[in-house]
């Protein structure tokens, strides 16, 4: 048992840091598939616009709502065409950029701000904590869609504004979770031990508390990703989000909704893209939670290390 372990140690020491991560990814096939899908999606977001923006916006009224799985009009029509005869595949690829930018931006912003405020609220004095928590309550008690409508009515609808609005409405989720966890973790023994060593507050927060909170935040973030995508689509549906001819997956879903009974593919394919992205993020975050936790990591390293068996050799 110990031999295998120290061998693994040596292996990880000699090879560059990235390699073990790839090997751990290889062992979890679901996470691997998820990672590949996300890479493809990211590729679409980066390059799609350059190659397909013309195809995605060229109307073809004779091909309105043409059904999927036929390549008579070219491979771009493999997923069918929308109400104006534009190829769905091209539109999904082009829409990836706006969708991922808005959802990713909003999730990252709300997570960063929420976690930071949560750490402050959990770690500092009761007064500061109360102020921050009541602010969070205000945001939570105000219907987020209404807030977004008001803000976007005043500001011009743009990607940046949309990101800001969506981020603000999601902050309380991260804030409350972080604060609750920090309140518990700060009383743990190893935080006390760090205090005895003379560790500064920043060190305690970033070295001892944040790494423990991070997996929870990451999991919430992946779930939130889907929520934000749908919230964006409802804003776009109301006409205060993304404006056509710009497109997002959420907007495509809501545009396809009137045709659900006659041409299901209009809403189905972009919906599938949303689901797959969320699912992939979820699988990947699940993998990351295990890979980043030294106690669990052995599950991905392949050495069948038993935690309890080692206690015998004291």
């Amino acid at each position: 048992m110990i031999e295998t372990l120290s061998n693994a140690d040596q292996a990880s020491r000699t090879s560059p840091r990235l390699l073990p991560a790839v090997r751990m990814l290889w062992r979890d096939k679901f996470a691997l598939a998820a990672a590949i899908f996300l890479l493809v999606a990211a590729g679409c977001a980066i390059f799609g616009h350059t190659f397909l923006s013309d195809a995605a916006s060229s109307q073809n009224l004779r091909g309105r709502n043409s059904p999927p799985f036929s390549v008579e009009q070219g491979w771009l029509f493999i997923l069918g065409a929308d109400a104006l005869g534009r190829p769905l595949l091209a539109r999904i690829i082009v829409a990836a950029r706006n969708t991922l930018m808005i959802a990713g931006g909003a999730v990252l912003c709300s997570m960063a701000v929420g976690a930071a405020l949560g750490l402050v609220a959990g770690y500092t004095s009761k007064f500061v904590s109360q102020v921050i928590m009541r602010l969070a309550d205000v945001i939570m008690s105000f219907p987020s869609l209404l807030l977004a409508v008001i803000v976007l009515y005043m500001l011009p609808p743009s990607v940046t504004n949309l990101v800001i609005v969506l981020a603000i409405t999601r902050i309380p989720v991260y804030l409350r979770t972080t604060r609750a966890e920090v309140l518990e973790i700060r009383e743990r023994m190893f935080v006390q031990a760090a205090k005895v060593m003379g560790a500064s507050h920043l060190r305690i927060i970033f070295r001892h508390i944040l790494p423990i909170v991070a997996p929870t935040l990451l999991t919430i973030a992946t779930l939130d990703f889907a929520f934000v995508m749908l919230a964006e689509s409802s804003l776009s549906f109301l006409g205060i989000g993304i404006q056509p001819p710009d497109i997002t997956w959420g907007l495509m879903v809501s545009q396809g909704r009137p045709y659900l009974s006659t041409a299901w593919w209009l809403a189905f394919w972009p919906g599938l893209a949303i689901i797959l992205t969320t699912l992939s993020l979820n699988l990947l975050s699940n993998w990351m939670r295990v890979a980043l936790d030294p106690v669990q990591r052995w599950r991905l390293e392949g050495t069948s290390q038993n935690n309890s068996a080692e206690t015998a050799n004291d």
Partner: peptide, 20 residues
């Protein structure tokens, strides 16, 4: 601080599980 150190009751809790 460095002149006085402490050893706690339960080492499982007093050592950060995420640090080598």
């Amino acid at each position: 601080r460095r002149q006085m150190q402490m050893v706690f009751q339960d080492p499982t809790q007093s050592l950060n599980p995420r640090m080598s």
